[in-house]
């Protein structure tokens, strides 16, 4: 057709990519590294304090998770976490606080649609896949481990 842009889909896609402004990669990388590192250091501080008060390593790790999840939820609730996320990208999405954010954010939003079918049904809208594939992989690993133990050990 004469009234269309004279390019194939592939050509057009490459053309658009060449025109599009690129993400500021260097800045993103530095921020992700620093913010991610800081969140992990906070985790270590919580862990060390717990151990100082006499918890064993495993319990201290559990306390660390719970406290970080609380912090993630709290910062999401007071409308701060999305700002950190916008600034730090993966730096705040990959740590467990980001996991917490991805559960709390839909919870807050879908509450407006009711508690059971809104909040209840949509809480894991974003984080659900992480649990599904995490648990499924662990069952697979467990099964392989069980077979190896049965027949080879």
């Amino acid at each position: 057709m004469s009234s269309n842009i004279k390019m194939t889909n592939e050509e057009y896609s490459d053309y658009v990519d060449s025109k599009a402004k690129k993400s500021p990669i260097f800045k993103n990388f530095v921020l992700a590294f620093i913010v991610g590192g800081i969140i992990c250091v906070i985790g270590q501080v919580i862990c060390n304090i717990s151990m100082y008060f006499g918890l064993d390593e495993k319990s201290a790790a559990t306390v660390t998770s719970i406290v970080l999840i609380f912090l993630g939820a709290f910062l999401t609730a007071i409308n701060v976490y999305w700002r950190i996320g916008k600034f730090a990208g993966a730096g705040s999405a990959v740590p467990i606080t980001g996991f917490s954010n991805s559960i709390v954010a839909p919870a807050i939003e879908f509450k407006l649609d009711g508690y059971i079918l809104g909040l209840g049904a949509n809480m894991f809208k974003v984080a659900g896949p992480v649990l599904v594939y995490g648990v499924a992989t662990s069952v697979g690993v467990g099964f392989i481990y069980w077979i190896i133990k049965m027949f080879f050990m």
Partner: peptide, 17 residues
Amino acid sequence: ERQFRLPLEHGNQKTPT
């Protein structure tokens, strides 16, 4: 945002486009 993208409070980066 609810219809097409992620929840408002979710921390993510928008692409430059």
